[in-house]
Amino acid sequence: MSRRIRNFLLLAPAGAWFLVMLVLPLAVVIIFSFGERGPAGGYVPAFTLAQYANLPARWAAFRNTMMLAPTGTVAALVIAYPLAYFLAVRVSARWKMTLLVLVIVPFWTSILIRSYAWIFLLGGRGIPALLDLIGISDLRLINTPFAVLVGIVYGYLPLMVFPIYVSLDRLDKRLLEAAADLGARPWAAFVQITLPMSIPGIATGCMLVFILLMGEYLIPALLGGGKVFFVGNALVDLFLQSRNWAFGSAVAATLVIVMLVTVSIYMRLMARLGNGRDDVSLM
């Protein structure tokens, strides 16, 4: 009896948090998505599928998001993996901590401030001005898809680096010795041992970045000059500008469904890649 009470008390904060922060808002979003917009905006109770029927009006935003999220994830992975490998395998224990901290340091400031730094760096007086000195003139970087990609890779890099770093750092170095002993050249050992053994880290990193990218709106708005429009941006406009809560809720609910579907497909894929290993954590 007292054990049950204790368990209840232990789980109560997490349960309450889960209910208040996750279930209730989601329930509100779903209820609102079947409602209507009031004449001056907001929400009027109703039961209609009109909002969902109107979803094609945001098709472009969904399409852009479904392009950006995988592209950004892959770009972050391509940059993060060698960095994580370097930190986990090549750097001496003395420097590891310092370099790891350097990877996180940018996270100590707000993404807003860091994005403004990139606005300057990619703007006409930043990198293009430097390139101009060596003869590459009139290069436009800011407010391009490239700038958005740079911002994403920069902003999400630690989220990708850390899980991969952990999986590489945990990798038993004797496995690599064993591979070498059995005649594997360094590259062959990397492909056959290191890479498959770091799949849990890759999967976790990709999942984190991918999910967050699905809802990203700040980086496209700031570094894309507002010309690139993602579901996140559509939601901000729907809730904060046109105050069409009903339609905004329908878009949000759809985004959640698209995410769930994508994530479950991805998990199945990763599970197959991991050959049913139980140490392939997916989140």
């Binding site: 009006a57 945001r58 472009a60 935003a61 852009n64 507002g226 010309k227 429009f229 941006n233 559509a234 406009d237 729907l238 500008q241 046109s242 069409n244």
Partner: peptide, 11 residues
């Protein structure tokens, strides 16, 4: 007007 703006931004 709100929808027009959304179409403009996502175009």
């Amino acid at each position: 007007r709100a929808e027009l703006m959304a179409r403009f931004k996502s175009a």
